[in-house]
Simulated assay, not measured.
Amino acid sequence: MSARSDVEATQNQMSSGVTPEHLKAALEQRLGAVHVDIIDMSGGCGQMFEAIIVSPQFAKKTTLARHRLVNAALKDEIAAIHAWTPKCNTPEEWEKKQAQA
């Protein structure tokens, strides 16, 4: 679902209240995330996001437990959008990935 114009994209984001900046701030505050990258995959309409989230709270948790933690932290925001894809890493895992890149 892609917005037909920049104006329409802005209106969609304003009506849902969900922007990449809002999601980033919420994750930093609610999960103590030390690194967050939010990508709007919807072409600007603010309805489909992919996120890379790095938080020490993910330590010793399975992928499913990490996703549940994120989904609980963003319950209201996720309800207002169409699609959400989190990629969760601990700081140590993120450092390894960056070193390999």
Results as ranks from 00 to 15, higher is better:
Thr19Phe: 02
Ala59Ser: 13
Ala59Phe: 04
Val18Trp: 01
Asp40Lys: 00
Leu27Phe: 03
Gln29Tyr: 01
Val34Thr: 14
Pro20Glu: 09
Glu50Val: 12
Leu74His: 03
Ile39Glu: 10
Gln47Asn: 11
Ala26Tyr: 00
Leu31Lys: 06
Lys60Glu: 15
Val34Ser: 15
Asp76Thr: 04
Glu50Tyr: 06
Glu77Ile: 02
Pro20Gln: 08
Lys24Ser: 14
Leu27Met: 10
Phe49Thr: 05
Leu69Arg: 13
Cys45Met: 14
Asp37Pro: 00
Ser55Phe: 02
Pro20Thr: 03
Ile38Arg: 05
Val70Thr: 08
Glu21Ile: 03
Pro20Lys: 09
Lys75Phe: 05
His22Trp: 03
Leu31Arg: 04
Pro56Cys: 11
Glu28His: 12
Ala25Met: 06
Ala72Gly: 15
Leu27Val: 01
Val18Asp: 00
Ala72Arg: 08
Cys45Ala: 15
Gln29Lys: 13
Arg68Asp: 07
Leu69Glu: 14
His35Val: 02
His22Arg: 14
Arg66Glu: 12
Thr63Leu: 15
Ala33Arg: 13
Lys75Ser: 10
Gln47Ile: 12
Gly46Arg: 10
Ile78Phe: 00
His67Cys: 07
Leu27Asn: 06
Asp40Asn: 02
Ala72Ser: 15
Val70Lys: 02
Asn71Thr: 01
Lys61Thr: 11
Gln57Pro: 09
Phe58Asn: 09
Ala79Thr: 03
Gln47Cys: 13
Gln57His: 12
Gly17Ala: 10
Ile52Trp: 03
Ala59Cys: 07
Lys60Phe: 10
Asp40Phe: 00
Ile78Asp: 00
Ser55Ala: 11
Asp76Arg: 00
Asn71Trp: 04
Gly44Cys: 12
Phe49Lys: 06
Ala73Leu: 03
Gln47Asp: 10
Arg68Glu: 10
His67Val: 08
Ile39Ser: 11
Glu28Ala: 02
Met48Ala: 15
Leu23Val: 02
Thr19Asn: 05
Gln29His: 09
Glu21His: 03
Thr63Met: 12
Asp37Ala: 11
Leu74Cys: 08
Ala79His: 07
Arg68Tyr: 06
Val54Ala: 06
Ser42Asp: 05
Arg66Gln: 15
Glu21Thr: 05
Ile53Trp: 06
Ala59Pro: 05
Pro56Asp: 12
Gln57Ala: 15
His22Phe: 07
Lys24Thr: 14
Asp76Asn: 09
Gln57Ser: 14
Asp37Arg: 14
Leu64Asp: 02
Met41Pro: 07
Ala26Asn: 00
Ile52His: 11
Thr62Glu: 02
Gln57Arg: 15
Gly32Val: 08
